[in-house]
């Protein structure tokens, strides 16, 4: 039996409200809040990046797993904001956790599903018996161009999962992947910000792949939406995952616990993985969780998790995801946000 042995999240404490961004660009904040179902988003200060978020999330995961970094056979980080263009994020994270040198390490990229890719591969290696424990992380300090719709959602956060075979907190029952070549969102080399295809990012991209993966996964498992206590989907905004859940037959109640976008924003590769951590924080042994990620380009990974008895023992060993999301927040104005996100050109 394989699954998650430990999990953890990390979210910066800084937030910016939709009104603060809209004010600068002359946009109508209420319509953005209503249309995207977003109220605020996390903001990484200058000393926080995908590597630092990954390390902190992984430390929480290791503590919940009761595993030492040296026991990790693989360290995989999925992100579209790796701090270096050439040099792995994973080596820094592995070194910080004490996982070096006997460890396989790779950085993954697949827009917003890079995190679930890392989970998929780490789980596969554990299942194959190549490693005892694999660390999979999804995290981003997402980019959104000034004044673009993405600027209201692009945020920061990471989730980490230790995959293993013993002392599980959640067993994996089924997984699948669904992908096509769909040019809905991209960032060319040397460009600061991604571009997107507007409305094309909806039906032919997000909804096609999320519902396609979900339906295939339900069929594979011989299950129906009512068989699950929780569901979590990729959340580029607050609206899309709620609509996807409804299209598939899940209820709002099943989707609420992992639906973090309204106050977290879109953490790209961290989005559905962080949502999963919020569910694991409150789920009970025996509960089943339905998860589908989405990455532009495009593809979705689906997982069905069944919570194990040990989950209750580890939920409060470290800060929960809701604690990280809701407590000790610092709200910043647009000027501070622009400085933190290096949007100010110092041409001297």
């Amino acid at each position: 039996m394989e699954g998650i042995v430990g999990y953890g999240a990390h979210i910066p404490r800084h937030r910016i409200k939709v009104e603060e961004i809209a004010k600068v660009w002359g946009a109508d904040a209420p319509s953005y809040k209503r249309g995207l179902q977003l109220r605020e988003k996390s903001v990484p200060p200058p000393d926080v990046d995908t590597i630092t978020l990954s390390v902190e999330a992984a430390k929480r995961a290791l503590k919940r797993a009761g595993v030492d970094g040296a026991q990790l056979g693989a360290v995989y980080i999925g992100s579209e904001s790796h701090p270096y263009a050439v040099k792995p994020s994973g080596t820094v994270v592995a070194e910080a956790l004490g996982a070096v040198p006997d460890c396989h390490c790779a950085d993954y990229e697949f827009a917003c599903k890079a995190g679930s890719e890392a989970m998929f591969v780490a789980m596969g290696l554990v299942k194959a018996g190549y490693i005892d424990y694999g660390l999979a992380i999804g995290g981003d300090t997402s980019q959104g161009a000034p004044s673009d719709a993405l600027e209201y959602s692009a945020s920061a956060g990471a989730a980490a999962f230790i995959m293993g075979r013993e002392n599980l907190v959640a067993e994996i029952e089924y997984s699948n992947s669904y992908m096509t070549d769909t040019p809905d969102f991209w960032r060319r080399e040397h460009e600061f910000y991604p571009q997107h295809a507007g409305r094309y990012t909806g039906e032919p991209a997000y909804f096609k792949h999320v519902t396609g993966a979900a339906k295939a996964l339900l069929k594979k498992a011989g299950a129906e939406p009512g068989d699950f206590q929780y569901c979590v989907f990729h959340q580029p905004n607050g609206k899309f995952p709620m609509r996807a859940a409804k299209m598939l037959g899940f209820t709002k109640e099943q989707n609420l616990t992992g639906w973090l976008a309204p106050t977290l924003g879109n953490t790209y590769s961290g989005a559905s993985p962080i949502g999963l951590t919020a569910i694991l924080d409150v789920a009970k042994p025996g509960d089943r969780i339905f998860m589908v990620s989405y990455g532009s380009g495009s593809g979705s990974d689906g997982f069905i998790w069944k919570c194990a008895d040990r989950l209750a023992e580890v939920q409060n060993l470290v800060a929960t995801t809701r604690t990280l999301l809701d407590e000790r927040l610092t709200y910043v104005d647009y000027g501070t946000y622009a400085k933190y996100r290096r949007k100010i050109l110092k041409n001297y």
Binding site: P46, D47, D49, I51, T52, V55, E56, K59, P83, A96
Partner: peptide, 10 residues
Amino acid sequence: MDLQVEFRRI
């Protein structure tokens, strides 16, 4: 006061 250590970019 109590503080905790966090991994950051220096």
